[in-house]
Design a protein around this nucleic acid. Structure first.
Lengths: 217, 217
DNA sequence: GGCCGGATCAGGGGATACCCCGATGGTCCG
DNA sequence: CGGACCATCGGGGTATCCCCTGATCCGGCC
């Protein structure tokens, strides 16, 4: 295909925009520029670019705000792809930007040819990250499981205590747990005492949160 | 650096393993092979590869099981990077594999040179995805916010009810909520009745799970 | 003004939750 | 065999949860 990728450059520094524009040269089709959130939203709607090069620290709410506004105005199908371009390599910036809908995140230390390649790949639906940043995203994504610290505590529970714990954490009343496990309510209470003591919790509410945080439900 | 990347190939089909091995040629250092979960875990501990090429549909629990077992035996620091290699491009396979800790996911339609490049990039900490699959991961990540269906229920709560709800869901006792908001326990009870009625829940335990599922904590 | 919804409070009561004490069996182990 | 750990129960108590009815005050709306 000979169609060049249509790109919109969003950054609050005019100097940087012209730098990017000259680096990109004729490899892509720069259809416009924007310097803040409002301009960016308007420019996307007007020019319908394939890829938006989006500065993360943008006046008026940051690049994430641009994506949020556009996601409500445009269907996710026909909207542009967003490639975040930032001086920051802080994890919270990267994660926040991805959560907001960006398909890639590269730092401004990138070279011109690399940026052209990144734009191409994003326009095709691929995800592009500066090598060091990819770890942040996947760690944050996989990290929501968090098994490591759990086992130390969880392993101290006996098999029966774990069964009771699981049901209690799901919101079962003692009476219901008793019926479910064919034991007396008093036995359930005994197990629960052990569970709370071993996990250093003080109520079933804390237990529910504890289990919920660790996705044991 | 001249050090070749040390690679372990995990797949239950011997034919496929030898195919991969010949495709990789001398570009990387294949230190071993494994055909199921147990062999894979043992081989990683024995050979300490830099990158594990991991089949997703593996007898004995799948590739995810390999990563789970190793994550408990090895510190996350010195463990290998995992690159999932699968015939499946189903979203649930991709998401599940990434959640389990893989740093990349490519389909078996990949060419030899592309695979070598993918292995190199994963070994350097980059994330590698077949273009079409990257969207799954990022959509799932960004989509974990899920505001859409919540507002219908959540919007029916008044401001005060939301405050009470948030504290209750966090495990606060009525008494503690009352102190926190400078109101009477009886008022807290009234608000809670409204909250439970409007959300069609019947106890604070269900509320905790409800809020937890929606990340309102 | 009358109506309605929200926020505030009260009394009372049945059901739970959590804790204290103690007790009985069973297994496993030195 | 005695000690440990576990699973199983009980009595009794206090605090908490959840619901019921009923009340006052305020602000918006027709």
């Amino acid at each position: 295909m000979n169609n060049r990728v249509r790109v919109l450059i969003v950054d609050d520094h005019a100097m940087f925009r012209s730098g990017v524009r000259s680096e990109l040269g004729t490899a892509v089709d720069v259809v416009g520029e924007a310097a803040d959130v409002d301009q960016a939203v308007a420019a996307v709607i007007e020019h319908r670019p394939d890829v938006v090069l989006l500065d993360v620290h943008l006046p008026g709410g940051g690049g994430a705000e641009v994506m949020r506004r556009l996601s409500t105005r445009l269907g996710s199908a026909d909207g542009p792809r967003f490639l975040a371009l930032s001086v920051s390599d802080a994890a919270e910036d990267v994660i926040g930007t991805i959560r907001a809908g960006a398909r890639g995140y590269v730092t401004k230390t990138i070279t011109g040819p690399e940026l052209v390649d990144a734009i191409r790949r994003v326009s095709e639906g691929d995800a592009v990250f500066s090598p060091r940043l990819a770890g942040f995203v996947l760690d944050a994504f996989a990290g929501s499981i968090e098994i490591s610290a759990v086992d130390e505590d969880l392993d101290r529970l006996t098999e029966r205590e774990r069964e009771v714990m699981r049901l209690i954490a799901r919101g079962y009343a003692y009476k219901e747990v008793a019926r479910e496990l064919f034991i007396s309510i008093k036995t359930v209470e005994t197990h629960m005492s052990s569970v709370l003591r071993k996990l250093q919790l003080s109520s079933r509410h804390e237990l529910t949160r504890w289990a919920s945080d660790r996705r044991l439900l």
